[in-house]
């Protein structure tokens, strides 16, 4: 853990990668990047979508939502009390 802010007398640290918001945000943002690239580089298949570049727009939307989740987790972190031996390998 880079910085472990201690505000309460009890020792605690950020949930970090285990914070569900980081997991959701990470997966959605990754999907967003893949779809955006598909929209820009791949065949938009407008005969299916009715003229809209669906991959591009859906990709951008997922990227934004994913980043909002990551930002939310960064700005309002979840703290968990330290319990037992910590595993330093976990980021």
């Amino acid at each position: 853990m880079p910085t472990a802010p201690v505000r309460a007398p009890q020792r605690r640290h950020r949930a970090g990668a285990l914070d569900i918001r980081n997991i959701i945000g990470g997966l959605l943002a990754t999907y967003g990047v893949i779809l955006t690239l598909m929209g820009l580089l791949g065949d938009p298949e407008t005969d299916k979508t009715g003229g809209v570049n669906a991959n591009l727009w859906a990709g951008l939307a997922m990227l934004v939502v994913g980043l909002v989740f990551v930002a939310w987790a960064a700005l309002r972190p979840t703290y968990v009390p330290d319990g037992g031996a910590e595993d330093p390998a976990d980021g």
Binding site: A15, L18, I20, V80, P81, G83, G84, A85
Partner: peptide, 9 residues
């Protein structure tokens, strides 16, 4: 050992 994270978070 770190399951506290899981359960408590």
């Amino acid at each position: 050992s770190d399951s506290v994270d899981f359960f408590l978070s």
